[in-house]
């Protein structure tokens, strides 16, 4: 059953996943082409100065990409379920409704984490070629809230999409917006190094929100 469930989820998200990977990779390629270009036309040490002393984040272009990916994966997974109330089909499958919902989220999360792992490795590791490890380490620290925002956005997209009533969809969107905003409070590289763990804690609070949405649907909120 896991296999069948994942098969359906994969059919839904594969296009979005490939697209996300493509967009992320192109952005990373652009970032490093720009670094290379700057190293060639100006001086390497000036670029370093920009990063180390003037707090320039050379991969700022990537800032909202994980967020976009989180929303995209969420929409591609949950919109087809609510279109024509297809979620009825999913809930009618011969397995516990809660398990069915959690399996969907588990798949989406796996998919998202895989994408994030690949992209963060592609984004951070080539930096070692151009910069000392301190820069690479703090850069890795800098992207954590961006990816966390994507993760939060994925769960909240699920909550908003499956919620049957428009009124609550609007409320949850506002709350989600406020939540996501918290991940972009500081532009300083490494500013979140003491905060990302509690933020992951809040994200885990919304991670099983699908159970609440499914419950509302099953009880006839339409």
């Amino acid at each position: 059953m896991w296999k069948s469930m994942f098969y359906k989820e994969w059919i839904k998200v594969r296009l979005a996943s490939i697209l996300s990977l493509a967009v992320g990779t192109v952005a990373i390629l652009g970032i490093y082409l720009n670094v290379r270009h700057t190293f060639i036309i100006t001086n390497a040490h000036e670029f370093w100065d920009g990063i180390i002393n003037q707090r320039h984040i050379y991969f700022k272009l990537f800032k909202y990409i994980p967020l976009g990916i989180g929303i995209l994966i969420g929409l591609s997974q949950f919109l087809p379920e609510v279109k024509d109330k297809r979620i009825k089909l999913t809930l009618h499958l011969p397995l516990n409704e809660e398990k069915a919902g959690l399996k969907m989220v588990a798949f989406g999360l796996t998919c998202l984490l895989t994408l994030y792992s690949i992209l963060s490795a592609l984004l951070i590791l080539p930096g070692r070629y151009y910069f000392p490890y301190e820069v690479v380490a703090l850069s890795a620290n800098t992207i954590i809230p961006w990816f966390s925002a994507g993760l939060a956005a994925y769960f909240i997209t699920g909550l908003i999409t499956i919620e049957p009533l428009w009124k609550y969809k609007v409320f949850y969107t506002l709350l989600g917006f406020a939540f996501i905003n918290l991940f972009y409070q500081s532009d300083l590289a490494g500013a979140y190094q003491y905060a990302w763990l509690p933020f992951l804690g809040i994200i885990s609070l919304v991670s099983i929100s699908i159970l609440f949405s499914i419950y509302r649907f099953r009880k006839g909120e339409m």
């Binding site: 059953m1 069948s4 469930m5 839904k12 109330k85 297809r86």
Partner: peptide
């Protein structure tokens, strides 16, 4: 219980091969 939803709603993002493969895993 075999359930046919109003308007014959099914997972329309699948083709007839995929949807059979999907459901066969459950029954």
């Amino acid at each position: 219980i075999g359930y046919l939803i109003e308007n014959h709603v099914q997972y329309a993002f699948m083709n007839i091969y995929q949807i059979e493969k999907f459901y066969s895993g459950f029954y």
